[in-house]
């Protein structure tokens, strides 16, 4: 908004240059382009190994593209933390730049938490902030160029690609001729939200913390929600119904984990598949519009994940009566 006209002109030239470069690289435009074929990447659910697997008691461990992205997100969060804490230590009351944006976001979230959680705001808000920040940054790594498209080529049986050498260190893939090409592409960086481990871990932590807040606020009373034997004998018919509802509550707690995990995973994974498809159909320019959409979706999903976790935590602290079993549908 505060750009001078000169900067605007500069940005326009960059866009035009990128457009021309795209035309040059990916099309045979007037016979002068390189006409590098744009390949629809193979869609693989599990994250791909970059190093040789190490055996651990819990399963194989290896460095994967999603871990790189996770490290990147961690670094960004640490940078934001350093920026904010040093700025606040200096006694600033108004933050500027990126940390100013983070501060504005968190202030908004804090207001919402205060409206929902009341006196538990102080305990619940850090979780809301953590989940929203990490998920948002993880989702937005999708925007960076090269993510999920630059990777290690591994020759293996059943691979999807053939390879065309461009330079000493640079190869591009092209579609395999037959059913079995020779190579796999293992991206160096893959959006961490497309790894179910990340989303399931988030969902598990969120649901465990929901139970934690329930127990902390109501003590053992909290579990009467699940094991509703209080009215079983006093009101025969409704008691049985209450007991059944209690059992359903247990199921809903597990379904919370699944819905949390798969909502985020599905949105972001589908988004990256969408980008692949659009990019392979129209190599130039069309993808930009979908990048915009994915930017929006990434922010919304991060916000929704955090907001739902916060709402469930606040509900757990408030005890019976307020539950409408949204979690069962979510």
């Amino acid at each position: 908004m505060t750009e001078t006209p000169k900067q605007k002109v500069w940005g326009r030239w960059v866009v035009l240059a990128a457009f021309v470069l795209g035309l040059f690289l990916f099309t045979g435009f007037f016979g002068i382009g390189l006409a590098i074929p744009v390949v629809m990447p193979a869609v693989v659910l599990p994250t791909e190994p970059l190093t040789a697997p190490i055996s651990t008691p819990f399963g194989e461990f290896f460095l994967s593209g999603t871990l790189v992205a996770l490290l990147f997100a961690d670094l960004v969060i640490i940078a934001i933390a350093i920026g904010i804490s040093s700025a606040v230590k200096k006694g600033k009351l108004i933050l500027t730049g990126i940390i100013g944006g983070v501060e504005a976001l968190l202030e908004m979230l804090h207001g919402m938490t205060e409206g929902t959680a009341g006196k538990w705001t102080k305990q619940i808000f850090p979780w809301f902030a953590t989940i929203t920040l990490i998920v948002m940054i993880a989702n937005w790594t999708e925007m960076l160029p090269g993510v999920e498209t630059i990777g290690k080529l591994v020759k293996e049986e059943g691979g999807h690609y053939a390879v065309q050498a461009v330079g000493p260190f640079l190869n591009v893939v092209e579609p395999a001729e037959g059913e079995h090409g020779g190579y796999h592409l293992f991206p160096y960086v893959r959006v961490v939200s497309t790894d179910l481990n990340f989303t399931v871990a988030l969902a598990l932590v969120a649901v465990v913390m929901i139970q934690y807040f329930g127990v902390k606020s109501q003590g053992a009373n909290y579990f009467s929600k699940f094991w509703a034997t209080g009215t079983l004998f006093s009101k025969p018919i409704f008691g049985v119904i209450d007991f059944g509802v209690g059992l359903l509550e247990i199921v809903s707690e597990f379904s919370k984990v699944l819905s949390f995990a798969f909502r985020l995973f599905g949105n972001i994974f589908a988004g990256s598949v969408l980008l692949f498809v659009i990019g392979s159909l129209v190599p130039v320019f069309a993808q930009s519009i979908f990048y915009l959409l994915e930017f929006f979706v990434g922010a919304i999903q991060a916000f929704v994940f955090g907001l739902l976790a916060m709402t469930f935590m606040a509900q757990a602290t408030q005890g019976h009566g307020g539950e409408h079993h949204e979690e069962a549908h979510a």
Binding site: F262, R263, F265, N267, A270, I300, V304, L307, L308, H329
Partner: peptide, 20 residues
């Protein structure tokens, strides 16, 4: 947005199933 997220979750489940 919350409601849309809940409704969208259904579609996402479908998508996940399809992908699986």
């Amino acid at each position: 947005i919350l409601g849309i997220a809940f409704a969208e979750a259904v579609a996402i489940y479908c998508l996940v199933v399809a992908l699986l």
